[in-house]
Simulated scan of single mutants.
Amino acid sequence: MAETTLEEVLAELARLEDPKARAVNERHGDDHGVNLGKLRALAKRLKTQQDLAERLWETSDSAARLLALLVCRPKAFGREELDAMLREAGAPKVHDWLVNYVVKKNRHAEELRLAWTADPDPVVASAGWALTTERVAKKPEGLDLAGLLDVIEAEMKGAPERQQWAMNHCLARIGIDHPAHRARAIAIGEHLEVLKDYPTPPGCTSPFAPVWINEMVRRQHGGASGA
């Protein structure tokens, strides 16, 4: 499918539309009906095609945009282009894949992290916090972890849902990955009680930071893989 046209790809996406998949996706705020496993299989056949990715994104269709994020070249996008894409991403899954599959691999990731974290739009800010969490876990050098905890302690309780989830994830990762800050991270979680009563399916770890931190640390010490 190396020379597949936009029209052919859109036709294939239409054939993959599944009412059951749409019902599941819509419960998570995503407005498409394509099974993500089948979407990934299509992307694998298409391979990397930056021009096609850009045209898929321009359709504004969520399934097409998800496919675009799988077949694009993450390093090909400019800073302003990524900023515009994030602000128009719409569906949560498109937003998450854009941050995780594209922005994190782009040379502008740090610049965007700083700009987005301070953005008044909570959805944009959540992307900034997701990038901060990535640095906490993988490249913490130069980060002011105590300062991050100060901000989380002051702002997470009253933050809008998407931003709150992202800040909570950052809080948990600080506690999991940085023993020197673990006690304070747990104390902040216990004090704020964000997601304390979140319904957690059997076999899954609660997103409540103190429980999450303690469980991941226990797994690490027990030789199991962490989150």
Rank of each mutant, 00 (worst) to 15 (best):
A64L: 10
S126F: 06
A209I: 05
G158K: 15
E190Q: 12
A172T: 07
R162T: 13
D31Q: 13
N25W: 08
D61N: 12
L10R: 14
M216Y: 14
P199E: 14
A125T: 05
V217D: 06
R107E: 14
H178C: 04
Q164E: 10
A14K: 11
R15Y: 03
L13I: 07
L36Q: 11
V151L: 13
G29H: 12
Q163V: 02
E215Q: 14
R182V: 09
A41W: 09
D18V: 06
W97H: 07
E81Y: 08
L67Y: 01
N25C: 01
F208Y: 15
L145M: 08
H32P: 05
G147F: 08
D119V: 07
A53C: 05
R107V: 04
A2Y: 15
R22W: 15
E193N: 10
I152Y: 02
A209S: 08
H221S: 11
K104N: 07
V34T: 01
V99P: 03
P207L: 00
A187I: 10
L192P: 02
D83I: 04
H181S: 09
R218H: 09
A76N: 04
H95K: 11
S225F: 12
L82N: 03
L16D: 02
T4H: 09
G175S: 01
Q50E: 15
R182F: 11
Q220A: 11
E80D: 13
D121S: 10
L70Q: 15
G142T: 03
E8P: 03
L39G: 00
A118T: 10
P19A: 11
E17P: 05
N35A: 05
L13M: 10
G37E: 10
W57T: 02
L39N: 00
R173M: 14
P122Y: 06
W116C: 04
G175C: 02
A23Y: 08
T4V: 15
S225V: 15
R15C: 04
I176Y: 06
V136S: 00
R219Y: 12
A118D: 13
A166Y: 05
G29S: 07
T4E: 15
G189S: 01
F208Q: 01
E190D: 07
P207H: 02
E8F: 05
L192Y: 02
P201S: 01
L148T: 02
W165A: 03
D150F: 09
V71S: 00
A209R: 03
E190Y: 08
R65K: 12
P122A: 00
W97M: 13
R162K: 13
T133Y: 07
A159R: 05
E155D: 14
A21M: 09
K93E: 10
A91D: 14
A185K: 02
E215V: 11
G147V: 06
K105I: 10
G203M: 07
L114A: 10
D31T: 08
S62A: 14
E7H: 12
E88G: 07
G175W: 02
L171C: 03
T4L: 11
D30T: 04
K75N: 09
